[in-house]
Amino acid sequence: MDSVKTKLDPTRFRRVERPPEPVDVSYDRGTLRRVWASLRENRLAMVCLVLLILILAASLLAPLSPYDPDLYDLTNKLSLPSLEHPFGTDELGRDYFTRALYGGRVSLAVGFFSMLVSVTLGTIVGTVSGYVGGVVDMVLMRILDIIMSVPTFLLIIIINAYVSPGLPTMIFIISIFAWMGVARIVRAETMSLKERDFVLAAKNLGTSDIVILFRHIIPNMSSAIIVAASLSIARAILTESSLSFLGFGVRLPTSSWGSMLQSAQSQILYNPLLAVFPGVLILITVLSFNVLGDVLRNALEPKMVK
């Protein structure tokens, strides 16, 4: 016993200083913070965001440019990039930078507004189809399948030949062929949400179906809609550029990135940069929207990651 006691002599114990263990308190601080956190983690996404903001701001501020995008200056055609003309000038001597900015306005506007239209349309069709179910669902989904099976691009070109070209028609035509993907996502989400207990509880409280849709179902799938929206902007911009490239987009002289690519085609041997600038702008914008869409998906739907 004695020996045990001596062993437990308190002087033999040394106090070890340890830093306090970090208490990991993580609160769900809301969607915005979560998005911001995953943006900061992802350097590529951050770069994309900055580039997008730059392109957006530059396009919005395009009227500040000292040049008229449509003014010919034939004495100064096909000049190389310089301080005066950062992107050089095109075959008619117009300042290419200014034209690119105005073209960006068209492309981004088409992208943004056709996203709005297609997401709205897709959400309406998707929620109705998923919520009502039965025959309504079947009919709507078959209509959707039919539209999806049509070679969209050809149809857009054909329709374009019959209607007067312009920004609103362009937006309308692109979006009526872009809502199906959103509708499918929204339908699936609606079908799973309407079985959830809180929707059942709302029904049990006598809440009408319309109110259930707007108050309980749509807000709970906002993240899926946001992701679909960001991807649909990218697609709409691509569609618009392709159409303009083929000459079915907005009417000249209004520029768009696609139409700039087209006119650069004939000058490609003299000044290949004319094709590079709008091409790179399209690339960056579409890529950025896609990357951000993915980041949003990861941030807003943590289930998919883990």
């Binding site: 959830r196 207990d197 809180f198 059942l200 509880a201 709302a202 029904k203 049990n204 409280l205 006598g206 809440t207 108050r215 309980h216 807000p219 709970n220």
Partner: peptide, 29 residues
Amino acid sequence: FTKQVQTIFQDPYASLDPRLRVEEIIAEG
């Protein structure tokens, strides 16, 4: 009938809408 007959749900996590404030949840009925 929905005013006369009410339900207390089994799972308090699934049966309350995460997008609403407590006040809105209670005031819905």
